[in-house]
């Protein structure tokens, strides 16, 4: 491994919802260019972990650093943590892009409007420049002709590609994907996976929660298997899928295949 500053570093992350402990001490490092695939059964805490990275969920304990900068946190009265510095939180968030299972586009804006929204409003980029760049990324995801369409008038696959364009437009340090194809009809999964595969080939840093095992095997540089809020096994895809050691992982892979 190279010794560049990690794009994302998670140290001993804990999270509980009330009395339910969902993450029980997770440590994970993604270096620039890494494609980390996170797999695991339903309820194992994959989404929760991913959402802690941009503080959509606040950790109960542990530390998270993006490109070497740790979130400033302070203790809450009930023994958890909360972000201590809103400015820093917003600045770091703007460097991460998240692609959601349900796309979560802004339906009152066109495709172009969705893609330029963050560069113009959050990053303060001049509109012309944002539009020019938006057209480039829309071209990349194959939506060049759709820039004036509204999300509601597009297929799920097109919406998800628009969501990916929205992320690309901010040139994020790392991209976070939470099951980007789970809400899609089977015949639309391919077009989205193709886009993500291209991005992975460019060695963009990403952390990708997915149920598509074949895809994870193809694109990931590193695979993490979550089980009951712990990383039970991790390693290169050949090892995880070809020679899994943990009995749970062996069973999980058999059940999916």
């Amino acid at each position: 491994m190279n010794n560049a500053t990690p794009a994302v570093e998670i140290r001993d992350l804990h999270k509980h919802f009330g009395r339910l402990e969902v993450l029980k001490g997770i440590s994970l490092t993604a270096r620039p260019g890494d494609v980390v695939a996170v797999i695991g059964g339903s309820g194992s805490g994959k989404s929760t972990m991913l959402r802690c990275i941009n503080m959509l969920e606040t950790p109960s304990a542990g530390e998270i650093a993006i490109h070497g900068e740790a979130y400033a946190m302070r203790p809450t009265r009930d023994g958890g943590l909360e972000p201590a510095d809103r400015r820093q939180l917003q600045r770091i968030r703007a460097q991460l892009g998240m692609v959601f299972q349900n796309f979560n586009l802004w339906p009152h804006r066109t495709v172009l409007g969705n893609v330029i929204e963050v560069p113009v409003q959050v990053l303060g980029m001049p509109r012309d420049e944002a539009v020019a760049r938006a057209r480039q990324v829309l071209e990349r995801v194959g939506l060049a002709e759709k820039e004036d369409a509204y999300p509601a008038h597009m297929s799920g696959g097109q919406q998800q590609r628009c969501a990916i364009a929205r992320v690309l437009a901010v040139e994020p340090l790392a991209m976070l994907f939470d099951e980007p194809t789970s809400a899609l009809d089977p015949e639309l999964v391919g077009e989205v996976l193709t886009v993500i595969r291209d991005l992975a080939a460019e060695r963009r840093t990403m952390i990708l929660v997915t149920h598509e095992m074949g895809f994870a095997r193809d694109v990931a540089s590193h695979v993490v298997y979550l089980k009951d809020g712990r990383i039970e096994e991790q390693g290169p895809p050949e090892q995880i899928f070809g020679d899994p050691r943990s009995p749970h992982l062996q069973q999980f892979i058999r059940s999916i295949a």
Partner: peptide, 18 residues
């Protein structure tokens, strides 16, 4: 208003007022 749309806005670093 679906939560996800607001969550996306927050995830991209928008301040609350924005």
């Amino acid at each position: 208003v679906p939560r996800g749309e607001l969550e996306a806005a927050r995830a991209f670093g928008m301040p609350r007022l924005m």
